[in-house]
Write a protein that binds this DNA or RNA. Structure first.
Length: 220
DNA sequence: CAAACGATCGGCT
DNA sequence: GCCGATCGTTTGC
């Protein structure tokens, strides 16, 4: 069965067919507007994906599995799409990626930002932030909750503990749901990926995507 | 075994 | 805009 946007109604889980497609750049675009869900602590926390980046072995120097090099850390990227790849960055930040493509191809999409929907209080607690009493409080910008790959992972309770977790196992605490279908091309902007200057010409590839009209992205 | 290096964040100037 | 924190992973000796 081939994935078709019309096959999945709003609120339903994204199926295996969505993730195992071979074009990770397209999947990165089509993850925009979808809903990331976790259910830790018996509490459902969700957010609309607003910013993503594609990473693709073997030709992408910025990808951890560049040249299809297998290590203990990157092995999960070679597994079948539809699971988490979470790794520790700078010794502090847990970065959550969605593994894509069939088994053997190491492709993944870094989730860079979400817009909180459900469980906002729990997210704030995980972030050690106090929710603003109103929108005018200086320094209380709600974006500090879930904008940035390290901060959204913390808000959602996602750590390296969950790397390899399938979105389809019966008791999984993490999965994705259809938001409102595939976002139109005109509502998406693209640019260079962040923090990959070391990757030579790959650093210039426009594989970062964000919702043009969202406040919940790094710039804007 | 030692050491360098991050797909970042937040505080400070 | 700049800079330090912080530690698992990876690679080199």
């Amino acid at each position: 069965m081939i994935f078709e946007p019309s096959n999945v109604a709003a609120g339903e889980r994204l199926p295996r067919e969505f993730f195992i497609r071979t074009d990770v750049v397209r999947v990165a675009r089509e993850l925009l507007g979808q809903l990331l869900v976790t259910t830790f602590d018996g509490i459902r926390t969700t957010g609309i994906i607003t910013e993503t980046e594609a990473y693709r072995a073997p030709d992408d120097r910025a990808c951890h599995a560049f040249a299809n090099r297998r290590t203990a850390r990157t092995e999960v990227m070679f597994q079948e799409g539809g699971r988490a790849y979470v790794y520790l960055c700078y010794g502090i930040h847990h970065l959550f990626n969605v593994v894509t493509a069939p088994e053997g191809a190491a492709h993944a999409v870094l989730i860079r930002a979400i817009q909180p929907v459900e469980g906002v209080e729990r997210m704030a607690a995980r972030r050690n932030l106090t929710l603003p009493e109103n929108d005018q409080v200086p320094g209380s910008d709600i974006r500090r909750l879930t904008v940035g790959p390290g901060t959204l992972s913390q808000a959602m309770g996602l750590t390296t503990r969950w790397t390899g977790q399938s979105f389809f196992s019966p008791d999984t605490p993490v999965w994705l749901e259809n938001g409102e279908g595939i976002v139109a091309e005109g509502d998406i902007e693209a640019g260079k990926r962040i923090g990959v200057e070391y990757a030579g010409e790959c650093a210039g590839w426009p594989w970062r995507f964000w919702l043009k009209n969202s406040q919940f992205v790094k710039k804007g």
